[in-house]
């Protein structure tokens, strides 16, 4: 088996493991509801990084494409980060 196929299979298995962790974490009761959402978003983010780098080929693309790909994710983090922060502040009061 070529190293490229082995690499893709490894990513495939990692994605399934992360999904299994997400499902397992959802049954854990040691996290607050907002903690569950943050953990879910972080795990989904790590899956996105793997798909982006290895399946979408960003690992080998030039800087312009990487920046173009990164830009909406930065906006996603700012928008949803601000909302989560707002929820946390709301819960404190």
């Amino acid at each position: 088996m070529s190293s490229a196929i082995t690499n893709k299979l490894n990513i495939f298995i990692t994605l399934l493991v992360i999904t299994a962790v997400q499902i397992g974490l959802s049954y854990a009761d040691f996290l607050a509801p907002v903690g569950h959402i943050i953990a879910a978003l972080l795990l989904a983010g790590s899956e996105t990084i793997l798909v982006g780098l290895f399946f979408m080929g960003l690992k080998n693309d030039d800087r312009l494409l990487r920046t173009t790909a990164l830009f909406p994710f930065v906006l996603f983090c700012i928008m949803n980060g601000a909302v989560v922060l707002d929820v946390l502040i709301f819960m404190k009061h």
Binding site: F71, P72, L75, F76
Partner: peptide
Amino acid sequence: VSFGMWLFISSEIMFFTPFFAMYIIMRN
């Protein structure tokens, strides 16, 4: 072609982003 597609993907991500923000606000 690749750059055009990445711009389209960026716009699609920005299309879905407010849905997640809306959902988190609704949950709270």
